[in-house]
Design a protein around this nucleic acid. Structure first.
Length: 662
RNA sequence: GCCCGAGUAGCUCAGUCGGCAGAGCAGCUGUCUUGUAAACAGCAGGUCGCAGGUUCGAUUCCUGUCUCGGGCUCCA
């Protein structure tokens, strides 16, 4: 019998009998691998373990240890979900069910507009576990598109997938709409489907795990509405979300992370720590800042102002509304009218609340004749803007309808722009690091196909300048094709928080358009008039959002330099009240934010209250402390407490911590 | 804006198969005067999100609406 020889990832070769499958290879390498194997890649194409191998192929066995393996696991679990739902809801039909970050979803259309509720998820999970216990094989089949249409005769969404992807490809080329469905089936005029019981098949490109018994560490998370093919004009489907993992331990760890994230939810912490609230009387997306929240915000803003002072920025202010003519000139009315609050008609003019600060800064630039000697001009404003976010998009501080940007606009010559952008990026990262963020992801967003203005050459020039700045900053970045603003390309910087989530904060945008639209000029060394480049930059993005991210990053336990209350002084008994007040006064004079919690209640109770407020320090003072001028220091996060610390020593320690931003 | 779900005391929640609405915590008052994460007692607190409808009677059933949560879309 003839043998074939395949090449393994480490470069070695292995002989197998003719007709051997990827699964056979895994078994040949070792029983451990055979057990862990989920799929394989053959010449970099993912295939089922049941796929036959041919001589000379590069083969790699994929387990759940890799992203590809985990994705397959999730995709297969989605199929099991579909099988369970179709069995439990007669007449239901199914649309698509891909793997996503941490899990999967599947979209269903139930008969007579029936809906799945969260309470139903447990029963569906139970049915899924039965299917998994039955260890049904995932059998791959390939048929022509026409046969596929017959096979899925009762399932219009599946038919539409076959028609848009498989059919379109045979007619030559596939449109944009087919791309998003391309994961479902291959586009060569034939389709593949998987059968895992007499009654259940699903259209799918694959690959899948060998059998349902390989699954099991999953949990259904929620139900939501979603449109068929993301189109608001198409039917609304029931989308069931689930999470799936390689092991019970991984699943438990994921659920634990979610619970941690929920504990860190800034809306919950904002209430528990009395930082801010969202009275319904104000309307969606509008918050009021309570004294403690305002205290933290003020520290953030003051720090930002200090850094901008040092960075050579000039501080400006601008009003909250402006006449519609301004927004016509700037282009906002053309491109973003639907996101702007509507006009107020006054004295024959209409005034609109500002969604951005840029045009005002442009007018400041324009207020006098500028020379190349003055450039670059860096303007800075904490400017509050209003944007009519869709009601469903509003989310606490992360997406609000009124917010304050730490906005700056830099006017520079074209020659200055690249260097200016590079130093700007360094400035941005330096400030973010000062707030405890260490890990960043950057994106370079290029010209949108629609909704943009300007010449291609200018876009290319600007995009290149941004690219160079990213390289200079040694920042890894992804390219977001078409993700730019209507007036120019941009760099977005995301930060990673303490539990690994990513948040978009900073943005740097190059703009040739506004200078053009407003006719900005400077006089060059040659005596001629030239057009400056404008660079838009928001560092924290919005103060509100930045505050929300910080709150979740620290889980409410702000470092001492940011904490609204840095220490509470707790007299053991009422007789120590005077000393406690004196200690507070001395610390306050030294510039610290300190409260006294007097002896109306038992000490343990007051300590507990202070701990729940996540104060950096609880200072207990009793007879010994009164006698020696000391305090008992109970630091947040430490096990025990330190007795008899001289007040001056504590003040010095707190001062060091504040200076170091710890 | 659209889909799904939820709105009961400041917070977390229970409850009423249509018949005067409950607990814990928080708050207030009093007693206790405490050495490192919950002293004791009492008081007060609700048009059961809002508006219509059905009903002898609605917090409960129906309709609409507002707000919130999850998702879609969007995010200058």
């Amino acid at each position: 019998m003839a043998d074939i020889s395949v090449i393994l990832p480490d470069g070695s070769t292995r002989s197998l009998p003719l007709g051997a499958t990827a699964g056979d290879l895994a078994a040949d390498i070792g029983p451990g691998l055979a057990k862990a194997a989920l799929i394989a890649t053959v010449d970099d194409v993912e295939v089922d373990l049941s796929a036959s191998l041919a001589d000379g192929q590069q083969v790699s066995i994929i387990t759940a240890a890799s992203d590809a393996g985990l994705e397959t696991l999730r995709h297969s679990t989605a199929h099991v979900l579909a099988q369970a739902v179709l069995e439990m809801y007669p007449g239901a039909t199914y649309a698509v069910g891909p793997p996503i970050q941490d899990g999967f979803y599947y979209d269903f259309d139930l008969p007579d507009g029936a809906t799945i509720s969260d309470d139903d998820l447990e029963a569906i999970e139970a049915r899924m576990q039965e299917i998994i216990a039955a260890d049904q094989p995932f059998e791959r089949h390939e048929v022509s598109a026409a046969e596929g249409l017959d096979l899925f005769a009762d399932h219009p969404y599946k038919r539409e997938i076959i028609e848009t992807v498989a059919m379109a490809s045979t007619a030559g080329g596939k449109g944009d709409s087919a791309d998003e469905l391309a994961d479902e089936v291959s586009g060569d005029g034939r389709i593949s489907y998987y059968r895992n019981s007499d009654t259940f098949i699903d259209l799918c490109r694959g690959p899948h795990v060998p059998s349902t018994g390989r699954l099991g560490h999953f949990k259904l998370m929620s139900v939501a509405g979603a449109y068929w093919r993301r189109d608001a004009g198409r039917p609304s489907l029931q989308r069931v979300y689930g999470t799936a993992w390689a092991s019970r331990k991984d699943l438990a760890a994921h659920l634990h992370r979610l619970a941690e994230a929920e504990k860190r939810d800034h809306r919950r912490l904002a209430r528990d720590l009395d930082l801010l609230s969202w009275p319904t009387e104000l309307g969606p997306g509008l918050a009021v800042w309570h004294p403690k929240g305002a205290a933290v915000r003020r520290i953030i803003e003051d720090y930002s102002r200090d850094r901008h002072d040092d960075g050579g920025y000039q501080f400006v202010y601008s009003p909250h509304i402006a006449r519609s003519e301004l927004w016509e000139t700037s282009g906002h009315l053309d491109f973003y009218r639907e996101s702007m609050y509507p006009a107020m008609e006054m004295d024959g003019a209409s005034y609109l609340p500002k969604p951005m600060n840029c045009p005002f800064h442009v007018l400041i630039y324009k207020s006098s004749q500028r020379s190349y000697r003055h450039l670059p001009i860096r303007m800075f404003e904490l400017g509050t803007v209003y944007r009519y976010e869709l009601s469903g998009a509003v989310h606490g501080l992360m997406r609000s309808r009124g917010f304050t940007q730490d906005d700056s606009h830099i006017f520079a010559t074209r020659e200055q722009a690249p260097a200016e952008i590079a130093s700007l990026l360094a400035f941005v990262l330096s400030v973010l690091r000062a707030f405890g963020f260490e890990s960043f992801d950057a994106r370079l967003a290029t010209r949108p196909q629609e909704k943009s203005v300007g010449e291609d050459a200018e876009w290319d020039l600007a995009t290149e300048a941004l690219r160079e700045a990213l390289t200079a900053a040694e920042l890894d970045y992804a390219v977001d094709e078409g993700g730019g603003a209507f007036y120019g390309p941009k760099i977005d910087v995301d930060v990673r928080d303490a539990i690994g989530r990513s948040w978009q904060l900073s943005t740097i945008q190059v703009d040739f358009q506004l200078p053009e639209r407003f006719g900005l000029e400077y006089v060059g060394a040659d005596g001629g008039r030239h057009r400056p480049v404008m660079i838009h930059r928001a560092l924290m993005g919005s103060i509100e959002r930045f505050f929300g991210v910080l709150l979740e990053h620290y889980g409410g336990a702000f470092p001492a330099w940011l904490a609204p209350v840095q220490a509470a002084v707790l007299p053991v008994a009422a007789s120590h009240g005077d000393y406690a007040a004196e200690a507070q006064a001395r610390l306050s004079r030294a510039g610290f934010r300190v409260e006294v919690s007097d002896a109306q209640e038992p000490l343990g109770r007051r300590i507990r209250a202070a701990k729940l407020q996540k104060l950096p320090y609880v200072l207990v003072v009793g007879d010994d402390d009164v006698a020696h001028g000391t305090v008992g220091v109970n630091a947040r996060g430490s096990d025990g407490d330190e007795r008899g610390v001289p007040l001056e020593d504590f003040a010095a320690r707190l001062g060091d911590e504040v200076d170091a931003h710890r």
